[in-house]
Design a protein around this nucleic acid. Structure first.
Lengths: 136, 136
DNA sequence: TATAATTCCTCTAGCAACTAGAGCTTCAAG
DNA sequence: CTTGAAGCTCTAGTTGCTAGAGGAATTATA
């Protein structure tokens, strides 16, 4: 049996976040001590680890809900898990693409070597989209 | 003079968002018609375009506050503008790096060709961080 | 000019995914 | 048995908007 603090240390999930996940229904309400404090089992620990790891990989809470549900049913086909993951991969890739366009633009405008705001490329570019090289 | 709707169309900023920016103090309160509707000038238009463009480039509202302030003072040195932009560039680059690590991991785990959840690499990897190749 | 359609107003509340703090209770070590 | 750490609930704040209610003003059409 773990207290919420021990669970937090073992998983790296902050205490208020654990309670928040409980509220969302991502984790079950654990048993309580006589004094009403949460007491977790190993199951609770591994479920929370799963959640933590999924969040680290950028899955949304709703995605995780689906993945958790699947993980409880080992006999089911795992197509759903794959499509959630594949969709997420696409999201990540398009975010990367978008950030790269930004990066290019920012690199370009920060090259400005003007001394003051009147002729500064950063300010000028922000004021006028027409000065941009790429879409964004 | 533009109505809020016209301003919205010209800048691509949605109407509630314009009012929200006003609330934040990013744009000045405009004059009003007799019937209390907002009426904007060209100044209002270009200020909002500046904001829109900066948001598109991913600057935070607080960054934009600084950049706007600077843009009002053409005689000032533009070091501050550069440091805001350079800092933002760094943020973007580190986000890219992080997403790339995720991408690699996701690519790897979605290669799984198992038929059911029991042996599915996606589920398995999420449950056990030890199976990951890279840090995240 | 009358009426209808559209736009605008303010205000409140909701989204994601937490985080922080107040004020109080329980637990564990010495 | 005391004391300090850790836990409890509840509310509110974060960022950057977006949605909806209920009503007033403006514009277009007949």
């Amino acid at each position: 049996m773990f207290s919420i603090g021990q669970l937090s240390k073992r998983t790296g999930v902050k205490i208020p976040t654990i309670r928040y996940y409980e509220q969302l229904g991502l984790i079950d309400e654990p048993e309580r001590s006589e004094g009403n404090q949460r007491r977790y089992t190993k199951e609770g620990l591994s479920r929370l680890s799963f959640i933590r790891h999924s969040r680290d990989l950028g899955f949304s809470v709703e995605d995780i809900r689906g993945l958790l549900e699947l993980s409880q049913h080992p006999e089911k086909p795992c197509l759903d898990a794959h499509s959630i993951a594949a969709q997420h991969l696409q999201d990540v890739q398009s975010r990367i693409a978008k950030l790269r366009r930004l990066e290019r633009e920012l690199k370009r405008i920060t090259k400005c070597d003007a001394g003051n705001v009147a002729t500064c490329a950063v300010i000028e570019t922000l004021a006028d989209h027409g000065l941009c090289e790429t879409e964004h």
